[in-house]
Design a protein around this nucleic acid. Structure first.
Lengths: 343, 343
DNA sequence: TTCGTTTACGAAAACGTTTGCGTTCGATAT
DNA sequence: ATATCGAACGCAAACGTTTTCGTAAACGAA
């Protein structure tokens, strides 16, 4: 597999390898006829430029590192898809690393990517307790987070307006006539999830209804966790007519438990999620939810990162995109008289 | 962001940078006391080795390229997840590229990864017509396919036994009493899909039942395609008691159409899929399906690739892993007398 | 002491590019 | 005729490592 180098084509073309380099890079310091000739020879020999050597001298790899909890997660894989396609269009490749929901691993792969000399890093952080220890790392390379940031870490980020999302979800349920709305959240060590809880609580206060929160002592917002805790919920006393879940994954877990306990959705309980992962649109699920504009967030994050790579000491930018409500079949309006029929 | 180099720590330590390199690489040609001292200085200065420079001289990047149709596809993202975690454990990072179901783009990103000097490539090919034109590319770097290969391209691959998968699915439906089984496949320009069709046809012949295939003129095996064609199917005359789908995605599309047309699953139609994507296990879906052992395939693919990187002219290996049937709720047994009640 | 051997380290080449600078050559202006 | 200048191209340094080779010091045996 002896690769063909610049020197090889230079020898064949009878020129110095600087000339070959210039022919390929589109430099003006070269004759039009020799350029044509050299390009033809490159083609014939099947020459492929060595990006590693190029990176070495240019001090730039054109690689973006992407750190996320698990690529095997509908929301994140959708986001990754958009990021990869758009980044490649901009001339960048993607190096993906799972943090596996582990703040320590998160830092480990961050250093690893630093050593790889990535030009920048896009990161969906695991929680907020890791922000502090990430400061030393993010100082070394342009970084943009996909997550809001309450601790004023001076970093760029793009995120959906989580607070507004749960707030409007609550308002929506209220407008349907629901007054007993329970919130199924996540332990709030993640910025995202504490904001979502906040939005719900604020809306309750504003609307004058009593908040009620399912205590979720697990750290993940996943389908099995949703299922497990919903089993507990349905087994005990409950009189809510609507449930707001911190994620679609949780909501889908709730669906299963509801099915097992013979409670119909939306017949007995209106259910609303957050994220709008693609599977929520599937007819057997058909979950009403708060959408995160994933493609917009992806391109915004890449743009923001590339800006920052070009101009490292530009002011930090924070983009909050608006969430939107997607109405499907998991919520229904109720009359006031219906309120008390549940056990 | 002036990075700290070997030279910098060498200067501080008062040694040559060759010595620093040896201290870090664990070479025996260095005194134990100086090693300790140098490592301490590296720690203090926050030195991070430059992988690019390392790759330059070692002629090896420790990067694996991964090419797949779309990372935003449950089967592929699950696979990617396992590949990334296992590869990293083996000291390799992953560079992911979408081919977006486009054979030309597939070749384009392959060349791109070649230029990146990846040590090897794992690829889920789009179709089989692209194999020919890929020969020149795969000759330049160790490659393993995740897909069976009928054209005897001399490459390594790991795949589930697709033929056996649909065969056993058909046998399963037969054992439940079904005699009118329709196959919902994909246009067979993909090796995977032609083998799946083959397995179905073989089983029909062996079992002595008449095969029946829904003509799928779309190239993708996706949820919307499944939905669209199932709409047609349910609108026209149909008397099958069971349907075998070439993928879970198709099957889920069928589910929606069935719902719209008032045909109950499995009441009126038994449905079975292929892949066992995670969402098929969700209670509202609960799809009986043929499982692909994704984690096993992932680690096998990585192992195979690393073997090949170490020993490029070792004989080609082809691993076929057995599919397994996962029984869930989308199939039911029928009596012979039931056979004719459908229109 | 003297010779040979081992140990620990330094000097420098090499990896494949990009690019600043110098040089040559032809054309134009003086 | 010479001086000026721009175009086209070659030379060589540089990027940050790894590794071969050389060598000085240390050490043991004769």
């Amino acid at each position: 597999m002896g690769m063909i180098t610049l020197k090889d084509v230079a020898k064949v073309a009878g020129v110095s390898y600087a000339t070959v380099s210039r022919a390929l890079s589109g430099s003006p310091e070269i004759g039009e006829d020799t350029r044509k000739r050299i390009l033809k020879i490159c083609e014939e020999m099947g020459y492929t430029p060595n990006s590693v050597a190029r990176s070495m001298v240019m001090k730039r790899t054109n690689i973006i590192g992407l750190i996320l909890a698990s690529i095997d997660n509908p929301f994140m894989s959708e986001l990754t898809n958009h990021i990869e396609i758009y980044a490649r269009k901009c001339g960048y490749n993607l190096m993906v690393c799972n943090s596996s929901y582990d703040p320590n691993l998160e830092k480990e792969v961050f250093s690893l990517l630093l050593g790889r000399q990535v030009d920048g890093i896009i990161m969906i952080p695991v929680g907020n307790e890791s922000y502090d220890s990430l400061k030393a790392l993010t100082a070394q390379v342009p970084t943009v987070f996909i997550s809001e940031n309450m601790q004023d870490l001076p970093e760029n980020y793009v995120a959906v307006d989580n607070r507004r999302g749960t707030e409007s979800a609550t308002e929506y349920l209220y407008s349907l006539g629901h007054r007993k709305i329970v919130y199924f959240g996540c332990r709030t060590h993640s910025v995202t999830h504490s904001l979502r809880l906040e939005g719900y609580l604020d809306a309750c206060k504003k609307l004058g209804i009593a908040p009620s929160v399912i205590h979720n002592h697990y750290s993940r917002s996943s389908y099995p966790v949703g299922n497990l805790l919903a089993e507990e919920y349905f087994s005990g006393p409950h009189d809510h007519t609507a449930m707001l879940c911190a994620s679609d994954a949780l909501a889908i877990g709730v669906m299963q438990a509801a099915y097992n306990h013979g409670v119909s959705i939306p017949g007995d309980l209106s259910l609303i999620g957050f994220d709008n992962i693609s599977f929520s649109a599937l007819p057997p699920i058909d979950l009403t939810t708060i959408n995160q504009p994933k493609q917009q967030m992806a391109t915004e994050a890449v743009d923001m990162l590339l800006d920052r790579i070009k101009n490292p000491d530009s002011p930090h930018r924070r983009v909050i995109v608006p969430p939107t409500l997607v109405e499907r079949k998991s919520c229904r309006p109720i009359r006031a008289s219906e309120e008390e029929i549940h056990v």
